[in-house]
Design a binder for these strands. Structure first.
Lengths: 331, 331
DNA sequence: ATCTCATGAGAGAGCGCTCTCTCACCTGTC
DNA sequence: GACAGGTGAGAGAGCGCTCTCTCATGAGAT
């Protein structure tokens, strides 16, 4: 009833366990006819190596943890960037024959769980998606003796290699586009200020406004559609004469567009809108959204390569990827 | 340099390895002062049990595979139902102290990979999200000696317990709403006909039209926004006098709304639109979408409970969850 | 014909843990 | 005071595999 072991394969092929092991692991020091006999036995018995036994002796698991540290339930489910990044990372890891253990770290309890799991030697390395500054997990994990890389620059200074996109440069390009198209009163809906993407995109906005002698008008959201809608209403109340808004992500821009519609403002005639991320939905808003595209798939793949490189003592330099302005109809 | 073993803990506490093991596994047959000594040693050494060694002897891994069998790259990344279901399943599994190994099965090669992995005894059970009829994975996995449950009724008749929502009933309720509000020419944008959700929602549409003596007008999409936009244009060409459309999911409804806008049709005045799924974005379309809500979170949680129940020889009856019509402005 | 050396295969230890079996010791009973 | 019964702790096997060490064999050199 139990699954066949290497012992059984060896017995059937008439060789020792060691030789069977050599064949399974593709060593070349086995004579062809013996190799064939072993392969036949494997096939006949339906033998599959026991991973627990193997990693007990090899001290490696061929598994990678993908830890998503995000207190809000909303963002993970709703922001397609997460799933896109996860998918891309998985494809890349599968090509390297690694398994992916997905872990959510939403509160102190699950943080402890994750730490225990990671230090339990279940995985060879960790990919961390943690965006919030107050998150204790990055530093906690960096103390463990496990290779860790981060998707996005960690919000706290901690010695973890990371891959990020050029948030500041992207925001600058977006706001500059608004300036160059003649907009005078350019507001922004910023992301959460405990997140690097939130901070950096706001910094980019401020940089350009400062250089073009405009006053900054800021509302802060939390990267959800709903917060974008609320922030837009607030901005319209603060400064009814605004004629453009740079929104720190597309999800909030979707909410902002709805608020503008409800307030009777035409986009882009009355108010120009620029988003950030270029999610698929940006093509389907009314009007379609001008936004900044960044290479999520590439970023996730680069993160995987960074981690796999670490195993072989590769470089730990951060990787920064460029963004690109995609002009549609909203600005 | 190596992680401390149970042996080290036992030595430090001055007990045998067996006693240390008893403490670690919470057995009560250990005298309090000895138990304390062991716990202190564990703490001082930072001991964490080696999972490979443990599962080698216990023959269980406390891990569950979540297999997503989806050939298209798009749907996984874009449809928020996937991430919502995944998240919900994970929360439920973490509560049961199980790990989640995420696997993508997109082509024959990765199918083989998944099969090998599952039969390698890496996991105690499998949760399968496979929606396409031609998918060989459900029957392949059901042959392995591993408990398997499915998210959604498998498209091929195969003996796997599953949890699904009432697709037929939901579609009927949506179309009935259109009939009752006086619409005469009600079209549908159906989902892929090799998927159960696609088939059942179309069946629901047909049921109601038949009962109300209306002619059915059908275009078929693939559950993406883009296919919804294309299908809507096609429907308008086929029958310019249509005054309502039931769209088999919200993503396609988003695309359909864009095509209606481009064709100069007002929603709901000229054409009423009903979607399916009630994704978050449905609140932010122009106009907000009337749609059918089904309990994705609950469905995923039920799937987990079904699987965990299987381990204890629980029931294998399918679970069907109800849907609910959410009326907004599009119909 | 003897010796050297490369080559292929087996023996066996050991990875870290669980769990059964065994045994020592203590309490209570007649 | 002898014995039964119960309780707590240790000894040791074994889970399935890898990998080093050892050894047998045969080809080539002298």
């Amino acid at each position: 009833m139990r699954r066949p072991t290497l012992e059984a394969v060896a017995a059937r092929a008439g060789v020792s366990r060691a030789t069977a092991s050599r064949v399974v692991n593709g060593q070349t020091t086995v004579a062809p006819h013996i190799r064939d006999a072993v392969l036949r036995a494997i096939d006949e018995l339906g033998y599959v190596p026991n991973s627990a036994a193997r990693s007990l002796v090899t001290q490696r698991t061929d598994s990678i943890a993908l830890v998503i540290s995000e207190p809000g339930t909303r963002v993970f489910s709703e922001d397609p960037l997460f799933s896109t990044a996860i998918r891309s990372a998985m494809v890349e890891l599968e090509a390297a024959n690694r398994q992916v253990v997905l872990m959510l770290a939403s509160n102190a309890k699950s943080h402890a769980r994750v730490e225990r799991y990671i230090s339990g030697g279940h995985v060879d390395g960790v990919m961390l998606i943690s965006m919030h500054g107050a998150d204790p997990l990055p530093s906690a994990l960096s103390r463990l003796r496990v290779p860790v890389v981060s998707y996005g620059r960690p919000a706290v200074p901690v010695d973890i290699p990371f891959v990020d996109n050029d948030n500041v440069g992207g925001a600058e390009a977006g706001v500059r586009h608004l300036v160059e198209s003649g907009r005078r009163r350019i507001a922004t809906i910023a992301g959460p200020q405990d997140m690097i993407a939130g901070q950096d995109r706001l910094a980019g906005y401020r940089n350009v406004l400062r250089d073009s002698d405009r006053r900054s008008i800021v509302a802060v959201g939390d990267f959800t559609r709903e917060s974008g809608a609320i922030a837009m209403r607030q901005l319209l109340g603060d400064d009814p004469s605004l004629d453009a808004v740079f929104v720190a992500n597309d999800l909030m821009a979707v909410g902002a567009l709805q608020s503008l519609r409800q307030a009777g403002r035409r986009v882009p005639d009355d108010v120009a809108v620029v988003g950030f991320d270029d999610i698929e939905a940006a093509k389907y808003t009314e009007p379609p959204l001008t936004t900044l595209r960044h290479p999520v798939v590439e970023q996730a793949a680069a993160m995987v390569r960074l981690l796999l490189g670490l195993f072989e003592g590769g470089p730990t330099d951060p990787v920064i990827l460029p963004t690109e302005l995609v002009i549609r109809e909203s600005a």
